[in-house]
Amino acid sequence: MITAALLFAGVAALINITPGLDTLLVFRASATHGKAAGVAAALGILTGCLGWGIATAAGLSALLAASRLAYDALRIAGAVYLIWLGTSALWRSWRDRASPQAQVDVEPPITQGRWAAYRAGVATNLLNPKAGVFYMSLIPQFIPPGAPLWSTTLLFTGIDLVELALWYWFVSGAAAALGERLRSPRFRRWLERVSGVAFLGFAANLLTGRH
Rank of each mutant, 00 (worst) to 15 (best):
I2G: 14
T3Q: 12
T3N: 13
A5Y: 11
G10W: 08
A12F: 09
A13L: 12
N16R: 05
I17V: 15
I17R: 10
I17H: 07
P19M: 09
G20R: 07
D22P: 10
T23L: 14
L24R: 05
L24N: 11
V26D: 03
F27R: 01
R28K: 13
S30E: 03
H33W: 01
A36L: 03
A37W: 13
A37N: 14
L43F: 10
L46F: 09
L46T: 11
G48H: 06
G53Q: 05
A55C: 07
G59Q: 02
S61K: 03
L64K: 12
S67Q: 06
L69E: 12
A70L: 04
A79S: 09
A79M: 08
V80Q: 00
Y81G: 03
Y81T: 04
I83E: 00
W84E: 10
G86T: 06
W94V: 13
S99Q: 15
Q101M: 09
V104F: 15
V106Y: 11
E107K: 15
Q112T: 08
Q112D: 10
G113A: 05
G113F: 00
N128P: 02
G132F: 08
F134D: 06
M136W: 09
M136P: 00
L138I: 13
P140W: 01
P140M: 04
P140C: 04
P144N: 10
G146D: 10
S151G: 06
T153Y: 00
L154K: 03
L155T: 07
T157N: 02
T157I: 07
I159G: 02
L161V: 04
E163L: 15
E163Q: 14
L164E: 03
L164S: 13
A165F: 05
A165L: 12
L166Q: 05
L166F: 12
V171H: 01
A174V: 09
A174D: 00
A175R: 03
R181Y: 06
L182P: 00
L182F: 14
R183I: 00
R183L: 00
S184N: 13
P185R: 05
P185W: 07
R188P: 02
W190R: 12
E192Y: 12
E192N: 14
S195R: 09
S195I: 02
F199H: 08
L200F: 12
G201P: 00
G201K: 00
F202A: 10
L207E: 03
T208M: 11
R210A: 06
H211D: 01
